[in-house]
Amino acid sequence: MAEYRIENLSFSYTKTAPPVLKNIHLTIDDGDFVCVVGPSGCGKTTLLRLLAGLALPTVGSIKMNGKTITGPGTDRGIVFQNYTLFPWMVARKNVEFGIQQTKQDLSHGEVQDIANQFLQKVKMEEDGDKYPFELSGGMRQRVAIARALAMDADTLLLDEPFGALDPKIRANLQDLLVELWDNAGNMRKTVICVTHDIDEAVRLGNRIFFMDQGTISNEISVDLPRTRHFQDPINGPKMCGIRRQLYALFDKSGAVTEK
């Protein structure tokens, strides 16, 4: 289980630089699927790195299950847009490496079994012995997701995980991610996914945070069933409504959107 409480959070990269994150308060509940959207440079990646413990707050605190985060931990799995796999390890080794760091008492055979199981879930078992450079962008992200899931971390932190992929593969992976998350029932992981893509946020999140200039300026709850499709006769119009809301927020923020 993983719930987060962010209190009075500010962050700047250097002592003299203006803060990148300003005065953020928010709560993320266990099993939430949160999407963070906002114009480029507003601080999304920075927020995710703070949640990961890769950087520490300048002011305020982030608590995970009541404990202040003081550094990275294997209870949080991360997937970045690029270079998120270790290029010198084949896909399978990447997944195994993740498992080994979390569960050090497992035998090598057990580690292999788990790795296989998760490679199967993302339909990558056939290409498990290829190096990342031999895989397409979509395949790499699938392996990265398999690694994060196989670590069995309570939280998934995703930074534009499908950013570089074509729309069809992107939709497939979105569905896969939601399916894997949803199937866990009340054992669901907490997912925090940063994205540029408004449609992605609407399809994935049950909470969407809109971020602007270092603060969370709006939150939208999406209480719609899975899997969501814009063409859906019942839910589609509701999704379009949320999409319009988000576009309006982007417009107000004065930034140029991607679509």
């Binding site: 890769l54 991360i78 970045f80 998120t84 760091q101």
Partner: peptide, 23 residues
């Protein structure tokens, strides 16, 4: 991002140097 990913595993200095930096 490779460095961030590696650090997110909370690796010891020894593993960091042997398994990440060396290769």
């Amino acid at each position: 991002q490779i460095l961030d990913t590696a650090r997110s595993f909370n690796l010891s200095h020894s593993i960091m140097i042997r398994k990440i930096l060396l290769p």
